[in-house]
């Protein structure tokens, strides 16, 4: 549609870019403050004791404790994701008993501080001295252990962290499942698939895109929450170990810095992982197709990261008439 009549390319706009003088001034001021703070911290504050930081950062006791923190994080998250998914499915099930049980679980484990829960888990052996398997309503005992021997402090910490986190994961998974178009379960039901088949085959796979990003946040959050296991009390994790070392050296500040550097290092690794995971699942949501049937130009405008339904042309805005 040429209206200009002239030939060749349309004229490019050559404009003078908008200036941001205030922005530049603020940036310089902030940089100055940061530099002053760093110089001051590096040379004029002996309490930071940087040589001690250098001495302890790769201390074997510290790196071993860092490994324990990672173990706690991974084990607790795996447990939380499995239990959380189960709780989410229970909350969405048509069965009122399952629904209520899941609701009560969330009420208790989300409604009390994780620190308090960890102290409770530490006192498990005080409350329940033995774990016994026997015949109900009789005095026959088949197996019996003392609680203290059966479950180590490390596993109490894992259980405590996992059960607390499961309550939050349940809400994340539930939100993911609710984000799936109700037409999906309707279509699946109409095909004669059962409720559990619909969940397993149709709803949960589609909800992953919504579940993955907040789960990444939860992993990072869990990494830091492990510093509370001293409440159990477990003393082999990163924070508790550095605090114990500083109790001997009467020099707490450099060891706090050591712990912080390790936490920041792990968090950075997790953030990188999360970035790639999110990218991967965002791509999945577009269902960009490489198969031989993918030559239809009409709908490949669906290259924007919207829900697949938006890629359908001529979608009428009125709902179905009922």
């Amino acid at each position: 549609m040429e209206t200009t009549g002239s030939s060749g390319q349309p004229e490019r706009i050559v404009a003078i870019p908008l200036r941001h003088p205030v922005r530049n001034v603020v940036a310089v001021v902030i940089i100055l403050i940061v530099v002053l703070f760093v110089v001051d911290a590096a040379f004029f504050r002996p309490a930071y004791d940087w040589p001690a930081v250098g001495k302890y950062i790769f201390d074997v006791r510290v790196s071993q404790a860092a490994l324990v923190t990672i173990e706690l994080t991974v084990l607790a998250m795996v447990g939380a994701i499995v239990l959380g998914t189960l709780l989410a499915v229970m909350r969405l099930s048509p069965n009122p008993v399952l629904k209520s049980v899941a609701w009560a679980y969330l009420w208790i484990f989300r409604g009390t501080p994780v620190y308090v829960q960890l102290v409770f888990w530490g006192l498990l052996a005080t409350i329940y001295k033995t774990i016994s398997v026997g015949v109900p309503f009789s005095s026959d005992v088949l197996f019996s252990w003392t609680t203290q021997d059966a479950i180590s402090v490390f596993w109490l910490a894992v259980i405590g962290l996992a059960l607390n986190e499961a309550a939050y994961m349940a809400e994340i998974v539930r939100a993911g499942m609710l984000s799936v178009d109700p037409g999906q379960s309707e279509a699946s039901t109409a095909l004669g698939m059962s409720w559990s088949q619909t969940m397993r085959r149709i709803i949960i796979p589609q909800s992953m895109r919504v579940i993955i990003p907040p789960t990444g946040n939860e992993v990072i959050s869990m990494l830091k929450t492990t510093s509370l296991v001293t409440a159990v009390p477990l003393s082999t994790d990163l924070y508790t170990r550095t605090r114990d070392i500083s109790a001997e050296t009467f020099n707490p500040i450099p060891l706090l810095i050591v712990a912080s550097i390790w936490y920041l290092f792990f968090t950075s690794l997790l953030m990188i992982g999360q970035y790639f995971l999110e990218r991967r699942f965002a791509r999945g949501s577009r269902f960009v197709d490489v198969g031989p049937g993918a030559d239809n130009p009409t709908v490949l405008v669906g290259a924007t990261p919207t829900a697949p339904i938006a890629a359908q042309p001529g979608t009428s805005t009125e709902g179905r008439s009922s």
Partner: peptide, 27 residues
């Protein structure tokens, strides 16, 4: 029972206004 209701539905095909194809599966 839900199972019996599902068994009845498998013999009745339904086509929806919004297609409701499963987007995570191929055709």
């Amino acid at each position: 029972k839900p199972k019996e209701a599902a068994a009845q539905r498998k013999d009745i095909g339904m086509v929806f206004q919004r297609f409701n194809l499963f987007p995570h599966l191929t055709v």
